[in-house]
Amino acid sequence: MTGADVLLLALGAVAVGAGVLVVTTKHLVRAGLYLVVCLGALAGDFLVLSAELVAWVQVLIYVGAVVVLLLFAVMLTRAPIGASDDLDRPGWPAALIGGGAGLGLTALLVDAYRWSTVTLPSAGTAERLGEQIFQSWVLPFEVLSVLLLSALVGAIVLSRPDIGRAAPQRDGAAGDLVDSEPGGRR
């Protein structure tokens, strides 16, 4: 057990513990805050695994943006502040499938790697990752940028009903007028 192992164990325990609380807590807002703890511990894991850039991007995008968005959604859907009892379905199938997936993957990976050791590769700094992205992975990068753009446009169209339905709505209103006028004359 080296120092890195101890750090990985501690951070992994924190991440799994916070993850358990995310999926079991009765408070909506607390679930979001436990998610921050879990994602932060995972960022620490990435740092120990010498993935510097990924760790900081994780802190920026997940802890900074995604969790804030989720908390906004919790507030916008008027979630109750205290504990709520109707958050869960009766969940033996969920426990069965989730536990099966988690423990099955654990058994598989433990069997594959046992207690072997590896040496950490050179740190994944922004310079090295940038070289890789813009030399070997340019095409996926561009496809992802198009995907982000389409997701942006899709989110805007979804959240503004007056954009997508403007034309049919006017048609419907005009149709109602046309329909109602003969009805009135009758």
């Binding site: 057990m1 080296t2 890195a4 192992d5 990985l8 164990l9 951070l11 992994g12 991440a15 799994v16 993850g19 358990v20 995310v22 999926v23 909506l28 879990c38 995972l42 894991d45 120990v48 695994l49 979630a79 109707d86 958050l87 869960d88 379905r89 969940g91 199938p93 969920a94 426990a95 499938i97 989730g98 536990g99 099966g100 997936a101 988690g102 423990l103 993957l105 654990t106 598989l108 990976l109 433990v110 790697y113 046992r114 207690w115 072997s116 050791t117 590896v118 040496t119 950490l120």
Partner: peptide, 27 residues
Amino acid sequence: MRPVIPYVTAALLFGLGVYGVLRRRNA
């Protein structure tokens, strides 16, 4: 560095995620 530790962490987190998706009612 023993890679089995982060691998097991990831497997358990994935199981927790599956459990949460199937268990929770709130979107």
